[in-house]
Amino acid sequence: MSIFRFLFSKTFLKQLGLALLILVVFIFIVKWWLGSTTNHDELIAVPDLKGMTLDVVEQELSNADLRPFIMDSANYNPNYPKFSVIEQSPAAGKFVKENRQIYLVLNPSGYRKITIPNVISKTRRQAEPTLISLGFKIGKITFVDYIGENELREMYHKGKRIQPGDKLQKTATIDLVLGNGKGSYRSSVSDNDSDSQNNDTDGGN
């Protein structure tokens, strides 16, 4: 009987109320601490970084409490400045937590260099598609006396003769020298050999 009288006494009720109050305060403090350390419900909008150079990007992300992570460069995009952002993840406008990494792909300094294939002695119909498929552009077409009509004899880039195996930047323009179908094979070979010897002599001088 005395136990029931104690449970309903003012002293026990005061202690019970105090314990509940302490529990509520403790739960509130824990929730506040978790919210402040994990930024619960605090999201940041990812800024649009495309076209920005790396130094500007770093400043933008620092102001937003975000971190950049640079990924491998992609293929060169002429629509963006060199070393600027051309891709980002998460995308602009997405909401993320503070200190989140933003993955960035930068525009390289230029097109990569490609090895010139051996298309000498190929017909124009064969050589042009091969060069174009690799990303080169076809420039000026000239003809020389040679029995093989439309057969590729020489290639030039910016006035300099180039050979199969040389490397040029993708989208580089290549000028083609083709045979015109005139003359004989022997005379054409002799002329070419003579030209090569003259070029070697001139180079030595």
Rank of each mutant, 00 (worst) to 15 (best):
F95E: 14
L49Y: 03
S196T: 08
I114D: 03
V25F: 12
V177A: 04
K31T: 08
R67G: 02
V119A: 03
W32Q: 14
D145A: 10
L23Q: 12
G17W: 09
T171P: 02
L20N: 05
Y156Q: 04
K160F: 10
V96R: 08
R186Q: 13
I116C: 00
K158E: 09
R153M: 12
D195E: 09
S187L: 11
I29A: 11
I141Q: 14
G35E: 13
A127E: 00
M71D: 06
I174Y: 01
I86S: 00
T130M: 04
L61E: 01
L178H: 04
D72K: 15
N150W: 13
V46D: 00
R5I: 06
G35D: 13
R67I: 15
K94Q: 11
F143M: 09
L106H: 02
P90R: 06
P90Y: 08
K122I: 00
L7F: 15
E151H: 06
H40R: 15
R112P: 00
A74R: 12
N39K: 04
G110S: 08
E42L: 12
S73A: 12
L61I: 10
V56R: 15
A92G: 11
K182V: 00
E128K: 01
K113M: 08
S73E: 14
R112V: 10
Q126N: 11
E87Y: 10
S133K: 14
S196W: 07
G148H: 09
L168F: 04
A45R: 15
G148T: 05
Y80S: 03
G165P: 09
T53C: 00
I86W: 00
L104V: 04
S121V: 02
S2Y: 08
D202V: 03
G110V: 02
D175Q: 08
I27F: 04
E60P: 01
D55Y: 11
E128F: 01
N99M: 03
F69I: 10
F12K: 06
M155G: 06
E98L: 12
Y185L: 15
I70M: 10
I174D: 00
N63M: 08
P164W: 10
E98V: 14
V96K: 02
P81H: 12
I132V: 14
S109R: 12
F95I: 08
K97S: 08
G93H: 15
K97W: 05
V105D: 00
L134V: 07
D72I: 12
N199S: 11
M71Y: 03
Q88C: 05
L21I: 07
I162R: 07
N77F: 09
V119G: 01
V24E: 05
L66T: 01
I102K: 04
N39Y: 15
R153L: 07
G181C: 01
D193R: 14
K170M: 11
W33T: 06
S190H: 09
G179K: 04
G204N: 12
L49D: 02
R100E: 09
V144I: 14
E154S: 12
N75H: 09
L43T: 07
G204Q: 09
K94F: 09
K170I: 10
D166E: 10
L178Q: 02
L7S: 05
R124F: 13
D193E: 12
L106V: 02
I141T: 14
T38W: 07
D175C: 11
S2N: 01
S84Q: 13
S84E: 03
R5D: 10
G204D: 11
I141S: 05
E154A: 13
L43A: 08
R124A: 05
K10D: 08
S62Q: 15
E98Q: 13
K160R: 11
L43I: 07
